[in-house]
Nucleic acid binder design. Structure first.
Lengths: 333, 333
DNA sequence: TATTAGCACTTAAAACGAAAGAGTGCTAGG
DNA sequence: CCTAGCACTCTTTCGTTTTAAGTGCTAATA
């Protein structure tokens, strides 16, 4: 357990470091406290021994360790309201009732990214729990047709497929069968149903059943494989952060941010801290040891998803948390 | 007009610089030529005076100037066939007849990007010259419907819109009207036609005409505004190029590569050199003074577009040109 | 007993100079 | 016209020194 003064010092070091980006000296701290720099120094030593602070070299000032940030986030950070400027910019977006949900979310995160210089991620609802609502087929040319798949929650995906010697009647029959037999099926189960319920029947009614069946089967597996709705906003903003000026570091981080499978991890990771907002500092997340991920989930009548902010560990936690909370609330309304 | 030996020297300097990334000395050149380094030096002086070579400082080796690259590309570069390894990797993709056109193009450029460490761009066909083929409407919830727009060439776009107190009959009537009156219209003219031909009629048959008309109008303007099919592949590969290790430079370049309007410029720029492949070196392109853009266009039965490769000015011109030529040929088949 | 002043010590960063290395430019002679 | 040779320039590297920022410890103090 830390003493009150130790906590005060840790808080000051974290907050000054966030602002100034360089190791914090005892001198700077003692100006804010009614005590001498020597006192602060011995306290800092204690905090370092516990593992909450670190030095970059023997005679440097102190920097919060990962454990230090964690302590700060868990015990010290105050959740004040957003500052007026941030609030205003976000309010404008949520007050515009013309925009649909997904556009609103993207816009608001663009603004967050712009103001903070952190990257943001939107993981929209997966279509995995959607039900197949309808399929449409549109002939494009002699050999091509476009298949459109629509789910009950409004996910739409299309693919143009190549079929030799299209017999439009056969296609129509197949579409009819699918729309009759497997509409209402969860997307994840469509492939199975296609195989066991449609395939046997299609053979009886449709001449080119082999070719057509395969084409549709591929379209559906494509649909389930696409990791849709992983959207990263303001990725380049992170280049303004001093911890990402080295080009190797940039390469490394970007290759992860471009990998949707890795970003998907933000969705699946979970931490029940009785709070709406979850924070993953450095090694606690799977993106990169040098970043912090702050995430929250939202749930509306017919949609739910995850939004997250990715920045350096030296992140303005109070500000980001208050922004995310505000955004979550407003989405859910 | 350059002498034969001057041309030989310029060629060697360009090609060595491409390979080694550092200023080329007279010594290196004279090993390849039957003459002394002093001779090469005086020739290099001449080439510098003409403006084809540059020095990085008084006593450095020579580097091609933009004009030098241009001379090389116009007069010196030989268009040999692709090397076997490049050829093989690309052939595999084009031999796979399962893939549709757009997937094939993307895959082949991924491979190019991988092998060369340059970024590539696909500017697919714009839907501007497409004709409206069909619209579909799918109700999603009490207040939401998804509108799907399909063009004759298989472009599909959808948008979920919010309508208070939906009257499904009204929607159906509107969709019917649109499908009757303006199907077949070029996408660019749909908005006008909607205003002058549909709006007057809709007022008579549809109760909520104001709200519904506006919603559909917005969906269509969205469609025409979306700069679709601007696809950049292998952007991060460019971080492997030594000219892009400075983080400010990276930021500057990335902000351009992320801006579809700027990339669109690659489509519109034109240079009739009687050749399939166009090359824009440094200031000749609108992307960035430090890059070269090599582009070509393709045209198939029902599709056409542009593909381009973006790399440093110190680009392997011969290799890239041969690859692009191969890809163009194969797309068009 | 907790605090502080004071000082020795450590380190990174900046400034400097010397030396080495890579190249050029020019001149004089073949 | 070509080339050997040499003076000159500039970058790079390396070690040295200086400066500035900061700590840790100790002894004195409140």
């Amino acid at each position: 357990m830390l003493t009150e003064r130790e906590e005060k010092i840790l808080t000051l070091i974290v907050e000054e470091y966030i602002k100034l980006t360089k190791p914090v000296s005892s001198n700077l701290i003692c100006k804010r406290l009614k005590c001498s720099s020597a006192t602060v120094r011995s306290e800092m030593k204690v905090l370092e021994d516990i593992g909450l602070l670190e030095k970059t070299h023997t005679s440097s000032g102190r920097v919060p360790s990962e454990k230090g940030y964690r302590y700060y986030v868990d015990n010290l950070m105050e959740l004040k309201k957003m500052n007026a400027a941030d609030m205003y910019k976000l309010k404008v977006i949520f007050d515009n009732h013309q925009l649909n949900l997904s556009d609103t979310i993207t816009r608001s995160l663009e603004v967050v990214s712009d103001m903070t210089n952190y990257a943001t991620v939107v993981l929209g609802s997966t279509s995995h729990d959607n039900l197949l609502k309808q399929i449409e087929v549109v002939p494009i040319s002699e050999e091509q047709i476009t298949v459109i798949i629509i789910t009950d929650k409004g996910h739409v995906q299309h693919k143009t497929i190549i079929l030799k010697d299209i017999n439009h009647d056969d296609i129509k029959k197949t579409v009819g069968l699918i729309n009759n037999l497997i509409v209402g099926t969860p997307i994840d189960e469509v492939s199975q149903k296609l195989e066991f319920e449609v395939k046997p029947i299609i053979g009886q009614y449709v001449e080119q059943h082999e070719q057509i069946y395969n084409a549709f089967y591929n379209v559906f597996t494509d649909f389930t494989n696409v990791k849709e709705d992983v959207n990263i906003v303001g990725k380049n903003k992170i280049l303004d952060q001093p911890e990402f000026t080295n080009s190797d570091k940039i390469k490394q981080l970007y290759s992860k941010l471009d990998n949707n499978d890795i970003l998907e991890n933000i969705r699946s990771i979970h931490k029940d801290n009785g709070n709406n907002i979850e924070i993953y500092i450095g090694e606690e997340n799977k993106i990169d040891d040098d970043v912090t991920v702050i995430k929250t989930t939202y749930k509306t009548n017919n949609d739910n998803g995850t939004i997250a902010i990715i920045g350096p560990k030296r992140m303005d936690y109070e500000r980001v948390v208050s922004m995310l909370e505000y955004i979550k609330e407003n989405i859910e309304r």
